[in-house]
Structures are given as C-alpha cells and as structure tokens.
C-alpha cells in the first residue's frame, strides 16, 4: 500500500514556523525521515495559504524534492497555490497528487481541470455541501459525480483516489464500518477498480492518547483487507508501518522474506 506521509503540515508548530520563515532545514529533515521510514509519497499541507500561497507552494515543493526522490501530494484549498505546486513538481519519481477535489461543485470545478491540465493524480473526497453522507451508497453517488467530472476533464479513472472519509469512532461508532463498506463499493465502480485513499488518523480523534495508535493500526488493517490503495499517515510510527507491511504480506501484495520488516 502506498504510504503518504502526513508530517509536513501547517498545523504543527515547527513546520508552520519553517514555512513562514522559509527555513529549509526542518522541512527537509522531516521529508527525509518520512521517506526513510517507508513513505512513498509526502503530503505537503500548506493550509488555505491566503498570503503568498503560490510562492510558498513553489518554494516548498522544490525544497522537499531537493532531498527526497518521491512524488508529492499537494494539500491546499487555494487553487492558485495548487497550480504553482503542480508547475514546480518534478515528475521524475512519479506524478503529483492533488489533495483534493470533492463533490462540492466549486471545489470540483477548480481542482479537476488542474488534474487534466497537469496530468496529475487527484483525491476525490466523497462529501458535498450538505456534508458526509451517512450511507456508503450515497458516498458512491458523489463518487460518480467526481468520476463524471474527471471524464469531462480528460482525467483517467485510474488517476482518481476516492476518499470515503473517516469519522471518529468515539463520536460515531457505526460510521467506522460504513467507511470500510464504502471502500469495497468504490472498488466496484469501475474496471479496473477505482483507487482509494483515507486520512487515517481521524478514526481515533477524541480517543485517549494511549488508545489512538492501536485504533489507527487495527482500522488500517481492516481497510486494507477491502483493498485500500493508499493512506495518509504518520510514517514515523513504527508499529503502524509494521502493520501495513505485514498486511501487505498477508494479502499477497508483497513477496515474503524473513526480513520483510526491514525493507
């Protein structure tokens, strides 16, 4: 499974400060650490980036790709910054991913044409202006709208990563199974099956700190069983990476060797 490292994020203090100061050090260090721990792609979350968003995205994409040879998942709601990131992205190690479009008309109309224009991958969140549907079936209906828009923009179905959206188990326990069901149903929307992604850690939001890693890990394994293709997670959590690698082995996605955890 593709691991998308989540640690370069405007929400964390050190990273935000580094972004503001245009200080390469902490960002490059975090990029290197995540790749070393198993990330195959890095999420670059600069937030709404209302001031100088384009310049910031251009700078951070180049800064990160100076030290790691992986593609990036560009995470901003600012379409101009998104485009600047796509322009700056070095595709030698894979295409960039847009994080994200959704069923909301405005966002879909802004982001999907960029994916078509730059040939990038794109995450489609299955929510719309009324929120996240309770039922997997209704998330599929939004997925179909996203896929329709993609076809209109010349984006191949295999470049879309559908996100069923994960709800915190402490607040809505019944939803955790619904998101798993959504992954299964998304896969059936196309042949070859649609690709899927989740922002994993939301499952344990609101749970005690000691429980969160366990909830995250077990939920990952369940989602992977349904065919989850990628997850935005913290690759520095060693046990999480071990669960992913082991699930990949048990699912036959990686060839077994006694030292599989070391690779």
């Amino acid at each position: 499974m593709l691991i998308i490292g989540e640690r370069i994020n405007v929400i964390t203090k050190t990273q935000r400060q580094a972004m503001t100061d245009r200080d390469k050090g902490p960002i490059q260090e975090m990029a290197l650490n995540q790749v070393k721990c198993g990330a195959g792609m890095l999420d670059i979350n600069i937030g709404p980036a209302e001031d100088n968003g384009e310049q910031l995205m251009d700078w951070i994409v180049k800064t990160v790709q100076e030290v790691v040879q992986v593609p990036l998942c560009l995470d901003t709601t600012n379409p101009a910054a998104m485009e600047a990131g796509l322009k700056a992205h070095d595709n030698s190690w894979g295409r960039a991913m847009i994080n994200s479009a959704s069923g909301e008309e405005e966002r879909l109309n802004m982001m999907m044409p960029l994916a078509g224009q730059y040939g990038s991958l794109i995450i489609g969140l299955t929510l719309n202006k009324t929120g996240i549907p309770a039922l997997a079936e209704d998330r599929c209906a939004i997925a179909a709208e996203i896929m329709g828009k993609a076809a209109e923009c010349g984006v191949p179905m295999e470049d879309i990563y559908l996100d069923p959206l994960i709800m915190p188990v402490p607040f809505s326990q019944e939803k955790s199974l619904e998101s798993i069901r959504a992954i299964r149903m998304f896969k059936e929307l196309n042949d070859p099956p649609m690709k899927t992604v989740v922002g994993l850690s939301n499952i344990s939001n609101g749970a005690p700190k000691t429980l969160r890693p366990l909830l995250n890990r077990v939920y990952t394994a369940l989602l992977m069983y349904e065919g989850l293709d990628s997850a935005i997670i913290d690759p520095l959590e060693r046990e999480m990476i071990e669960v992913i690698k082991t699930t990949d082995i048990l699912m036959g996605k990686t060839l077994y060797a006694h030292s599989y955890l070391d690779m």
Binding site: L255, A257, S259
Partner: peptide
C-alpha cells in the same frame, strides 16, 4: 526459492 532469493538480497543490502 523466491522467498530465499529476496531474503538473501535483503541480507546483502544490509
């Protein structure tokens, strides 16, 4: 043996 082939490559790389 494909698994042993992989294991040997890992050990050599290590």
């Amino acid at each position: 043996d494909v698994n042993l082939a992989k294991q040997l490559n890992i050990l050599i790389t290590q």
